[in-house]
Write a protein that binds this DNA or RNA. Sequence first.
RNA 1: GGCCAGGUAGCUCAGUCGGUAGAGCAGAGGACUGAAAAUCCUUGUGUCGGCGGUUCAAUUCCGUCUCUGGCCA
Length: 321
Amino acid sequence: MVVSTKDKKKFIFVVGSTASGKSSWALNQAQRLGGSIVNIDSVQFYKGLEVGSAAPTLDEMNLVPHYLYSFVEAPHEMTAGVFLRRFYELIEKGTLRFPVFVVGGTGFYIQALEKGMYDLEPASLEYRQEIERELKEHGPEMLHAELTAADPEHIIHVNDHYRLVRAIEILRQSGETPAQLKAKSQMQQNKNAFPFSYLKVGFSLPKEQARHRVETRTVQMIENGIIEETESFLKRGFQEWAPLSSVGYKDVVDFLIHNKSKQELVSNIVTSTMQLIKKQKTWFKRDSSILWSDLSNEKLLEMQRRLDLFLTDIDPATRAK
RNA sequence: GGCCAGGUAGCUCAGUCGGUAGAGCAGAGGACUGAAAAUCCUUGUGUCGGCGGUUCAAUUCCGUCUCUGGCCA
Protein backbone atom coordinates (compact mmCIF):
# COMPACT_ATOMS: atom_id res chain seq x y z
CA MET A 1 0.00 0.00 0.00
CA VAL A 2 1.53 3.26 -1.09
CA VAL A 3 0.22 6.39 0.53
CA SER A 4 0.80 9.72 -1.10
CA THR A 5 3.40 11.89 0.58
CA LYS A 6 0.90 14.65 1.17
CA ASP A 7 -1.59 12.55 3.08
CA LYS A 8 0.56 12.06 6.12
CA LYS A 9 2.44 14.25 8.50
CA LYS A 10 5.99 13.07 8.15
CA PHE A 11 9.02 14.36 9.97
CA ILE A 12 12.71 13.90 9.43
CA PHE A 13 14.91 14.58 12.44
CA VAL A 14 18.29 15.75 11.20
CA VAL A 15 20.69 15.45 14.10
CA GLY A 16 24.42 15.20 14.75
CA SER A 17 27.24 17.45 15.79
CA THR A 18 27.78 21.05 14.87
CA ALA A 19 29.50 21.87 11.57
CA SER A 20 28.72 18.43 10.18
CA GLY A 21 26.70 19.69 7.22
CA LYS A 22 23.25 18.74 8.47
CA SER A 23 21.70 22.16 7.86
CA SER A 24 22.67 22.38 4.22
CA TRP A 25 21.57 18.80 3.62
CA ALA A 26 18.20 19.55 5.18
CA LEU A 27 17.89 22.73 3.15
CA ASN A 28 18.55 20.88 -0.09
CA GLN A 29 16.12 18.11 0.73
CA ALA A 30 13.39 20.45 1.91
CA GLN A 31 13.79 22.43 -1.26
CA ARG A 32 13.69 19.32 -3.40
CA LEU A 33 10.58 17.97 -1.66
CA GLY A 34 8.75 21.21 -1.04
CA GLY A 35 8.89 20.81 2.72
CA SER A 36 9.87 23.08 5.57
CA ILE A 37 12.46 23.29 8.33
CA VAL A 38 12.04 23.59 12.09
CA ASN A 39 14.92 24.45 14.38
CA ILE A 40 15.92 22.20 17.28
CA ASP A 41 19.19 23.89 18.15
CA SER A 42 19.26 25.43 21.60
CA VAL A 43 21.16 28.56 20.59
CA GLN A 44 19.62 29.25 17.20
CA PHE A 45 16.32 29.94 19.00
CA TYR A 46 17.73 33.26 20.15
CA LYS A 47 17.51 36.56 18.37
CA GLY A 48 20.87 38.27 18.03
CA LEU A 49 23.00 35.12 18.24
CA GLU A 50 22.81 34.15 14.58
CA VAL A 51 26.46 34.53 13.63
CA GLY A 52 27.95 32.60 16.52
CA SER A 53 25.38 29.83 16.38
CA ALA A 54 25.80 29.37 12.62
CA ALA A 55 22.09 29.91 12.09
CA PRO A 56 20.75 29.81 8.52
CA THR A 57 21.13 33.08 6.62
CA LEU A 58 18.20 35.16 5.36
CA ASP A 59 18.92 33.97 1.82
CA GLU A 60 18.66 30.38 2.94
CA MET A 61 15.47 31.06 4.84
CA ASN A 62 13.97 32.54 1.67
CA LEU A 63 14.48 29.26 -0.17
CA VAL A 64 12.48 27.17 2.25
CA PRO A 65 10.16 28.13 5.14
CA HIS A 66 12.10 28.06 8.43
CA TYR A 67 10.48 28.05 11.87
CA LEU A 68 11.60 28.60 15.47
CA TYR A 69 14.74 30.50 14.57
CA SER A 70 15.72 33.82 16.19
CA PHE A 71 12.49 34.26 18.07
CA VAL A 72 13.52 34.42 21.73
CA GLU A 73 14.81 37.81 22.84
CA ALA A 74 17.06 38.58 25.79
CA PRO A 75 16.59 38.38 28.69
CA HIS A 76 14.09 35.61 28.00
CA GLU A 77 15.44 32.08 28.01
CA MET A 78 14.23 29.02 26.19
CA THR A 79 13.22 25.78 27.87
CA ALA A 80 12.43 22.36 26.52
CA GLY A 81 8.83 22.77 27.68
CA VAL A 82 8.34 26.01 25.78
CA PHE A 83 9.95 24.44 22.76
CA LEU A 84 7.46 21.58 22.76
CA ARG A 85 4.52 23.94 23.05
CA ARG A 86 5.75 26.11 20.16
CA PHE A 87 6.44 23.04 18.09
CA TYR A 88 2.97 21.53 18.52
CA GLU A 89 1.36 24.92 17.93
CA LEU A 90 2.98 25.01 14.51
CA ILE A 91 1.49 21.63 13.69
CA GLU A 92 -1.96 22.44 15.04
CA LYS A 93 -2.16 25.72 13.19
CA GLY A 94 -1.32 23.91 10.00
CA THR A 95 1.48 26.30 9.09
CA LEU A 96 4.03 23.62 8.33
CA ARG A 97 4.63 22.27 4.88
CA PHE A 98 5.43 18.58 4.83
CA PRO A 99 7.72 16.82 4.96
CA VAL A 100 9.13 18.70 7.93
CA PHE A 101 12.85 18.63 8.62
CA VAL A 102 13.62 19.10 12.30
CA VAL A 103 17.23 20.22 12.33
CA GLY A 104 19.64 20.69 15.20
CA GLY A 105 22.24 19.12 17.44
CA THR A 106 20.72 19.59 20.88
CA GLY A 107 20.17 16.04 22.08
CA PHE A 108 18.20 17.12 25.12
CA TYR A 109 15.53 18.87 23.05
CA ILE A 110 15.40 16.03 20.55
CA GLN A 111 14.84 13.63 23.42
CA ALA A 112 12.14 15.90 24.83
CA LEU A 113 10.40 15.92 21.47
CA GLU A 114 10.68 12.18 20.91
CA LYS A 115 9.89 10.90 24.37
CA GLY A 116 7.98 13.81 25.81
CA MET A 117 8.50 15.25 29.26
CA TYR A 118 7.08 14.53 32.70
CA ASP A 119 3.57 15.72 33.42
CA LEU A 120 4.48 18.51 35.75
CA GLU A 121 3.30 21.99 36.46
CA PRO A 122 5.94 24.53 35.54
CA ALA A 123 8.25 24.83 38.52
CA SER A 124 7.14 27.44 40.97
CA LEU A 125 9.72 30.07 41.66
CA GLU A 126 9.38 29.86 45.45
CA TYR A 127 10.52 26.25 45.60
CA ARG A 128 13.46 26.99 43.36
CA GLN A 129 14.56 30.04 45.33
CA GLU A 130 14.24 28.25 48.65
CA ILE A 131 16.28 25.29 47.41
CA GLU A 132 18.96 27.53 46.02
CA ARG A 133 19.14 29.40 49.30
CA GLU A 134 19.61 26.11 51.16
CA LEU A 135 22.29 25.08 48.72
CA LYS A 136 24.15 28.32 49.27
CA GLU A 137 23.89 28.17 53.05
CA HIS A 138 24.50 24.50 53.76
CA GLY A 139 26.22 23.20 50.69
CA PRO A 140 24.93 20.41 48.48
CA GLU A 141 25.27 17.53 50.97
CA MET A 142 21.95 18.14 52.73
CA LEU A 143 20.00 18.30 49.49
CA HIS A 144 21.82 15.26 48.22
CA ALA A 145 20.92 13.36 51.39
CA GLU A 146 17.29 14.42 51.03
CA LEU A 147 17.20 13.00 47.52
CA THR A 148 18.96 9.81 48.56
CA ALA A 149 16.41 9.32 51.36
CA ALA A 150 13.59 9.48 48.81
CA ASP A 151 15.42 7.55 46.12
CA PRO A 152 18.47 5.54 47.18
CA GLU A 153 19.12 4.53 43.56
CA HIS A 154 19.46 7.98 42.06
CA ILE A 155 22.60 8.74 40.10
CA ILE A 156 22.89 12.48 40.60
CA HIS A 157 26.34 13.49 41.82
CA VAL A 158 26.65 15.87 44.79
CA ASN A 159 28.58 18.32 42.66
CA ASP A 160 26.00 18.43 39.91
CA HIS A 161 24.18 21.32 41.56
CA TYR A 162 21.92 21.97 38.64
CA ARG A 163 20.48 18.45 38.51
CA LEU A 164 20.39 18.22 42.28
CA VAL A 165 18.33 21.40 42.65
CA ARG A 166 16.00 20.31 39.88
CA ALA A 167 15.48 16.86 41.43
CA ILE A 168 14.68 18.35 44.84
CA GLU A 169 12.38 20.83 43.19
CA ILE A 170 10.46 18.00 41.53
CA LEU A 171 10.42 16.02 44.76
CA ARG A 172 9.09 18.83 46.93
CA GLN A 173 6.61 20.14 44.43
CA SER A 174 5.11 16.86 43.24
CA GLY A 175 5.94 14.59 46.16
CA GLU A 176 7.49 12.16 43.71
CA THR A 177 11.06 11.45 42.75
CA PRO A 178 12.26 11.86 39.17
CA ALA A 179 12.59 8.08 39.01
CA GLN A 180 8.97 7.59 40.02
CA LEU A 181 7.86 10.07 37.38
CA LYS A 182 9.89 8.22 34.81
CA ALA A 183 8.37 4.89 35.78
CA LYS A 184 4.92 6.44 35.67
CA SER A 185 5.39 7.91 32.23
CA GLN A 186 6.56 4.53 30.98
CA MET A 187 3.46 2.89 32.45
CA GLN A 188 1.35 5.32 30.49
CA GLN A 189 3.07 4.06 27.36
CA ASN A 190 4.77 7.31 26.52
CA LYS A 191 1.61 9.27 26.09
CA ASN A 192 3.72 12.35 25.67
CA ALA A 193 5.91 10.81 23.02
CA PHE A 194 6.04 12.20 19.50
CA PRO A 195 2.81 11.04 17.81
CA PHE A 196 3.82 11.31 14.17
CA SER A 197 5.80 9.24 11.77
CA TYR A 198 9.46 10.20 11.66
CA LEU A 199 12.83 9.19 10.33
CA LYS A 200 15.99 10.06 12.19
CA VAL A 201 19.16 10.79 10.30
CA GLY A 202 22.50 11.96 11.64
CA PHE A 203 25.62 13.64 10.35
CA SER A 204 29.05 12.94 11.74
CA LEU A 205 32.49 13.70 10.36
CA PRO A 206 35.93 12.29 11.14
CA LYS A 207 37.61 14.43 13.76
CA GLU A 208 40.25 16.02 11.56
CA GLN A 209 37.74 16.92 8.88
CA ALA A 210 35.49 18.41 11.54
CA ARG A 211 38.38 20.42 12.97
CA HIS A 212 39.25 21.81 9.58
CA ARG A 213 35.68 22.95 8.99
CA VAL A 214 35.46 24.42 12.47
CA GLU A 215 38.65 26.40 11.94
CA THR A 216 37.46 28.04 8.74
CA ARG A 217 34.01 28.58 10.17
CA THR A 218 35.42 30.28 13.25
CA VAL A 219 37.45 32.76 11.22
CA GLN A 220 34.32 33.52 9.20
CA MET A 221 32.27 34.02 12.34
CA ILE A 222 34.67 36.69 13.51
CA GLU A 223 34.52 38.38 10.11
CA ASN A 224 30.74 38.13 10.17
CA GLY A 225 30.45 39.82 13.54
CA ILE A 226 30.32 37.38 16.46
CA ILE A 227 32.30 39.92 18.52
CA GLU A 228 29.81 42.69 17.71
CA GLU A 229 26.89 40.40 18.53
CA THR A 230 28.38 39.68 21.93
CA GLU A 231 29.28 43.30 22.63
CA SER A 232 25.76 44.44 21.93
CA PHE A 233 24.38 42.18 24.66
CA LEU A 234 27.09 43.18 27.10
CA LYS A 235 26.36 46.86 26.47
CA ARG A 236 22.71 46.26 27.23
CA GLY A 237 23.67 44.66 30.54
CA PHE A 238 22.88 41.06 29.66
CA GLN A 239 26.20 39.55 30.69
CA GLU A 240 24.39 37.06 32.91
CA TRP A 241 22.12 35.89 30.10
CA ALA A 242 22.60 32.11 29.90
CA PRO A 243 23.05 31.85 26.11
CA LEU A 244 26.15 34.03 26.38
CA SER A 245 27.86 31.16 28.15
CA SER A 246 27.43 28.91 25.16
CA VAL A 247 30.24 27.83 22.86
CA GLY A 248 31.85 30.74 21.04
CA TYR A 249 30.04 33.49 22.94
CA LYS A 250 31.67 32.60 26.23
CA ASP A 251 35.02 32.77 24.46
CA VAL A 252 34.22 36.21 23.04
CA VAL A 253 33.17 37.44 26.48
CA ASP A 254 36.50 36.20 27.82
CA PHE A 255 38.32 37.87 24.90
CA LEU A 256 36.59 41.20 25.58
CA ILE A 257 37.02 41.18 29.35
CA HIS A 258 40.62 39.99 29.45
CA ASN A 259 41.76 41.77 26.34
CA LYS A 260 43.05 38.71 24.60
CA SER A 261 44.41 38.53 21.08
CA LYS A 262 42.23 37.53 18.16
CA GLN A 263 44.53 34.63 17.51
CA GLU A 264 43.84 33.34 20.99
CA LEU A 265 40.12 33.93 20.51
CA VAL A 266 40.08 31.81 17.38
CA SER A 267 41.93 28.97 19.05
CA ASN A 268 39.62 29.11 22.10
CA ILE A 269 36.49 29.01 19.98
CA VAL A 270 37.88 26.09 17.98
CA THR A 271 38.67 24.21 21.19
CA SER A 272 35.21 24.88 22.68
CA THR A 273 33.56 23.81 19.47
CA MET A 274 35.56 20.59 19.26
CA GLN A 275 34.55 19.85 22.85
CA LEU A 276 30.93 20.44 21.90
CA ILE A 277 31.25 18.06 18.96
CA LYS A 278 32.67 15.39 21.25
CA LYS A 279 29.80 15.79 23.72
CA GLN A 280 27.26 15.69 20.92
CA LYS A 281 28.79 12.50 19.58
CA THR A 282 28.63 10.94 23.03
CA TRP A 283 24.98 11.88 23.32
CA PHE A 284 23.93 10.42 19.97
CA LYS A 285 26.09 7.32 20.25
CA ARG A 286 23.54 5.58 22.44
CA ASP A 287 20.72 6.17 19.94
CA SER A 288 20.82 3.15 17.67
CA SER A 289 17.88 4.30 15.57
CA ILE A 290 19.84 7.04 13.81
CA LEU A 291 20.80 6.53 10.20
CA TRP A 292 24.27 8.03 9.89
CA SER A 293 26.02 9.76 7.03
CA ASP A 294 29.12 11.83 6.41
CA LEU A 295 29.67 14.06 3.41
CA SER A 296 30.72 11.33 0.98
CA ASN A 297 28.58 10.97 -2.14
CA GLU A 298 27.97 7.33 -1.45
CA LYS A 299 26.53 7.92 2.02
CA LEU A 300 24.55 10.95 0.93
CA LEU A 301 22.93 8.99 -1.89
CA GLU A 302 22.07 6.17 0.44
CA MET A 303 20.54 8.59 2.89
CA GLN A 304 18.46 10.23 0.20
CA ARG A 305 17.27 6.82 -0.94
CA ARG A 306 16.18 5.97 2.59
CA LEU A 307 14.46 9.31 2.88
CA ASP A 308 12.48 8.71 -0.30
CA LEU A 309 11.50 5.23 0.87
CA PHE A 310 10.33 6.66 4.15
CA LEU A 311 8.24 9.27 2.39
CA THR A 312 6.57 6.71 0.16
CA ASP A 313 5.81 4.47 3.10
CA ILE A 314 7.41 1.33 1.77
CA ASP A 315 10.43 1.30 4.00
CA PRO A 316 9.98 -1.55 6.48
CA ALA A 317 12.51 -0.04 8.89
CA THR A 318 10.36 3.03 9.28
CA ARG A 319 8.65 3.50 12.59
CA ALA A 320 5.25 4.41 11.22
CA LYS A 321 2.62 5.40 13.74
C1' G B 1 82.08 37.73 25.52
C1' G B 2 80.38 38.53 31.09
C1' C B 3 76.47 38.25 34.79
C1' C B 4 71.55 36.62 36.24
C1' A B 5 67.02 33.63 35.54
C1' G B 6 65.17 29.38 33.53
C1' G B 7 64.90 24.39 30.68
C1' U B 8 59.92 18.90 34.74
C1' A B 9 53.19 15.54 31.11
C1' G B 10 50.81 18.15 24.40
C1' C B 11 50.69 23.63 27.01
C1' U B 12 51.41 26.83 31.65
C1' C B 13 53.89 25.76 35.86
C1' A B 14 54.43 23.35 41.22
C1' G B 15 57.74 20.06 43.71
C1' U B 16 61.46 16.63 45.49
C1' C B 17 65.97 19.60 52.91
C1' G B 18 69.01 13.22 47.65
C1' G B 19 64.93 7.55 47.92
C1' U B 20 62.73 8.10 39.85
C1' A B 21 57.18 13.49 40.60
C1' G B 22 51.79 16.52 40.58
C1' A B 23 48.18 20.60 39.70
C1' G B 24 45.40 23.53 36.10
C1' C B 25 44.41 23.50 30.99
C1' A B 26 44.31 20.42 26.58
C1' G B 27 43.26 15.18 25.25
C1' A B 28 40.30 10.42 26.09
C1' G B 29 35.82 8.03 28.02
C1' G B 30 30.95 8.67 30.28
C1' A B 31 26.14 10.66 32.52
C1' C B 32 21.98 13.52 31.00
C1' U B 33 13.45 14.28 31.40
C1' G B 34 11.46 21.98 31.68
C1' A B 35 19.12 26.46 32.03
C1' A B 36 21.48 21.31 27.88
C1' A B 37 26.43 24.92 23.00
C1' A B 38 24.67 24.23 30.07
C1' U B 39 25.99 21.11 34.26
C1' C B 40 28.53 16.98 36.25
C1' C B 41 31.66 12.28 36.78
C1' U B 42 36.09 9.14 35.57
C1' U B 43 41.07 9.24 33.53
C1' G B 44 48.10 11.87 34.64
C1' U B 45 55.04 6.94 33.23
C1' G B 46 56.98 11.86 31.86
C1' U B 47 65.00 9.76 28.91
C1' C B 48 62.34 15.90 35.43
C1' G B 49 67.65 19.60 28.53
C1' G B 50 72.63 16.39 27.22
C1' C B 51 77.13 14.28 29.22
C1' G B 52 80.19 13.42 33.34
C1' G B 53 81.26 13.52 38.92
C1' U B 54 80.03 12.70 44.26
C1' U B 55 76.70 8.93 46.59
C1' C B 56 74.14 2.58 48.36
C1' A B 57 70.84 5.96 45.58
C1' A B 58 70.67 12.14 41.56
C1' U B 59 65.32 14.94 38.42
C1' U B 60 67.16 17.07 43.25
C1' C B 61 74.17 18.41 45.07
C1' C B 62 78.84 19.59 41.95
C1' G B 63 81.20 20.30 37.06
C1' U B 64 80.60 20.96 32.00
C1' C B 65 78.06 21.56 27.43
C1' U B 66 73.61 23.17 25.09
C1' C B 67 69.03 25.99 24.36
C1' U B 68 65.63 30.16 25.82
C1' G B 69 64.75 34.98 28.17
C1' G B 70 66.74 39.40 30.61
C1' C B 71 70.68 42.75 31.96
C1' C B 72 75.80 44.42 31.00
C1' A B 73 79.57 44.89 27.33
